[in-house]
Nucleic acid binder design. Structure first.
Lengths: 234, 234
DNA sequence: TATGGTTGACCGCCCGTTCAGTCAACCAGT
DNA sequence: ACTGGTTGACTGAACGGGCGGTCAACCATA
């Protein structure tokens, strides 16, 4: 969360390895990343990395595991603090969009590297947890349908439409662009709620999306998700 | 176009190499694909591949170039045969969704491998052509805004929302799934037109999306796009 | 016999992984 | 306070496999 939390204590080496590795994989892909380059960037030896992590693949798995941890905690925070089905949905959309600024490298890695490689037990565990996460999201969607906010439809397909629009962000977003991530997130919320919503719901409400407290709540949830993990060990 | 055009003449070796290579890259990524494996699958030697293509990267570039060729021809066909701004938009959305069935491997490769690797002159040419393609799409979007079909907004961001939802398809779509690609495409059209449309446009029209002739036209345009390329040489 | 597709052996580089060994910190027991 | 032992972080050299790319020789057909 480079640009939000400002905790400038020097990170333990283990965490710095993970961080630099994540950045490399985000830029060059898993197979395009050489542990030697990561070591050089950190001014340490290649052996040190393998001392802290069993293998290159285990390192990737740890990155994915930590990422899904953060997303799960974040989502849990949101569901704990928001009850209204419509607002839950909005908060969810905001959260998975905002993490493209606050957790960009890991988001890229997660989006790209955990799609393929159907085998490999390490990565499969992460994929399984993602399925669990998706399942929770689908429950949020069904609740929104029950409340008359969204049109009835196959929840999995609705979820994929939402994920699709938001997740594409990592393919083009750059922090220095003309639009802030908040502006982008607002667009997504508006488009998706109108696009997937019932006629009544659209007519009734005029963009609660930008209600300040929802935004603040999401930001807070994200911050909490990061903290919960600061202590993580080998 | 494995599942639609049924032209069973044996492909020239050059084309078969490209086809198998594309399938491998779609499955394992560019760096995860070994030319030796491609050769083995084809029952030829590695040297033969390098005889037909200067290098592995040149092969990838050719795959990308052919893909963008097809998309450009397809889009040109559509624009030539459809004038109404709203129908143009619908046809475009249908086309980039349908190619997830009819051109799945290349679509996956294009979506994943041409995002990164900012250098490399070969691939940059392809990326440049994609920019041109995107530009044409944005003109379609602006025309739709002028016609009162879409809400006024930054066309590039609107384009990215459309691309996002549709392009995500390759991350999860499997031909044997419960929904046909046509059903999925209909969902996308509906969601995007309502989500991005003006209130009047939404109220006025009740899903022209599934008008049969638009579908047929898109399918035809796709078929033409394939044919135009069958003759391609070194 | 010339041409162009095809082969398979081979080179050289890259990179993940291993491992023996150094160094510093810490913790006894005396 | 001195000593010896244990642990754990870290190193650097070496190994070994994988893979892209080269090349000389080998057909086959015209």
């Amino acid at each position: 969360m480079s640009s939000v939390v400002v905790d400038e204590r020097p990170l333990p080496l283990r965490a710095r390895i993970q961080q630099v590795f994540t950045a490399f994989v985000a830029e060059h892909g898993f197979r395009g990343t050489a542990l030697g380059d990561v070591a050089e960037r950190l001014g340490i030896s290649k052996g040190t990395i393998l001392h802290h992590f069993k293998s290159k693949e285990a390192l990737l798995a740890r990155v994915g595991e930590d990422y899904i941890d953060r997303r799960e905690r974040e989502l849990r925070q949101i569901l704990r603090r928001v009850q209204d089905p419509r607002e839950r949905l909005i908060a969810f959309i905001l959260s998975i969009t905002l993490c493209h600024r606050d957790d960009l490298d890991a988001t890229r890695v997660f989006g790209r590297e955990f799609a393929r490689y159907a085998d490999s037990p390490h990565l499969n565990r992460v994929r399984e947890r993602r399925r669990g996460y998706t399942h929770t999201v689908e429950e949020v969607i069904v609740a929104a349908m029950d409340a008359g906010v969204l049109c009835r439809d196959e929840p999995s397909v609705v979820a994929l439409q939402i994920f699709g629009m938001c997740n594409w962000t990592w393919a083009w977003y750059q922090p220095e662009g003309p639009l802030t991530i908040e502006q982008i997130a607002d667009r997504y919320v508006r488009t998706l709620l109108r696009g997937l919503g019932t006629a009544e719901a659209i007519a009734a409400e005029e963009s609660v999306a930008r209600s300040a407290w929802l935004r603040a709540l999401v930001a807070e949830s994200a911050a909490l998700a990061w903290q919960g993990q600061a202590v993580r060990e080998g």
